[in-house]
């Protein structure tokens, strides 16, 4: 269980995250949603210990430290691979540092996406780089896989393929925390949705289908989205111009 207790993070006095308390049991696929600046990336970086914060993050009851950090993996649209190394060299590096590295999964995902093994990553397209980033996160052998906007720059077919593959390969012990703006796309893939708004948890939902609603409807309700605001804005703009 990954547990966050009263996690608070400030940047130069400005609160980025406020009293976030959440728990993620093993085997869940959780969507982390929120507008730009809601705190999704900051939350992930705090979990990984890349940022200092107040509060606590525990993994199976123990604080995140070098002893258990290999239980967490991270795939980010900012990319965390070495651009000058090949995929093969990355595999060797991960093998050396993460004893539970999943070689077979790495190879089959590389094959599935037809990614070259011997070319430096810097020569990959943006889509290929994203795919490789996610492959590394999935192959590390972690129990908690944090993916931050992993598909930014990938086409729709690519993304759909990835969701299918992900759903097919995950083991019961593996938890995915997926931050994305593509709510409708991942609606059928995630089993739980955590909504962030201005650094706070605005909703933690898991049974929207039982209520006969779509994830998008629930998100709109939670954020009190006003569908008429576009029309009003356009009316105001057009009215002003015709004057």
């Amino acid at each position: 269980m990954l547990q966050l207790e009263k996690l608070t993070k400030s940047y130069y006095g400005k609160r980025a995250l406020q009293d976030i308390s959440l728990s993620f049991p093993r085997g869940e696929i959780v969507g982390l949603f929120g507008e730009n600046g809601a705190g999704k990336t900051t939350l992930m970086k705090c979990i990984l210990g890349l940022l200092r914060f107040e509060g606590s993050v525990t993994l199976d009851g123990a604080p995140v430290s070098r002893k258990n950090i290999a239980l967490l993996s991270f795939g980010t649209s900012e990319h965390s691979f070495f651009p000058n190394l090949s995929a093969q060299a990355h595999r060797d590096f991960y093998r050396a540092h993460f004893p539970r590295f999943l070689d077979a999964r790495f190879t089959s995902l590389m094959d599935f996406f037809s990614l070259p093994m011997h070319r430096p990553l810097r020569t990959f397209s943006t889509g290929q780089k994203n795919q490789f980033e996610v492959i590394l996160a999935l192959s590390q052998g972690a129990d908690y896989i944090l993916l931050d906007e992993p598909f930014a720059g990938n086409d729709i077919f690519n993304r759909e393929d990835f969701y299918k593959v992900l759903a097919g390969i995950l083991e019961p012990r593996e938890t995915i925390l997926l931050s994305t703006h593509l709510i409708e796309e991942v609606a059928g893939f995630v089993g739980r949705a955590v909504l962030l708004h201005k650094g706070c948890v605005a909703g933690d939902l898991s049974d929207w289908e039982d209520e006969g609603k779509s994830l998008m409807d629930v998100v709109r309700e939670t954020y009190r989205y006003r569908p008429d605001r576009v029309g009003k804005a356009l009316d105001a703009l057009v009215g002003e111009e015709s004057k």
Binding site: G49, R66, A70, H79, S80, F81, N84
Partner: peptide, 18 residues
């Protein structure tokens, strides 16, 4: 931190001195 943020990977390796 050039070309990517591999610093994220380096900072979350089990070997703290890497």
């Amino acid at each position: 931190s050039r070309g990517s943020h591999s610093l994220y990977l380096m900072r979350r390796l089990p070997d703290r001195w890497e």
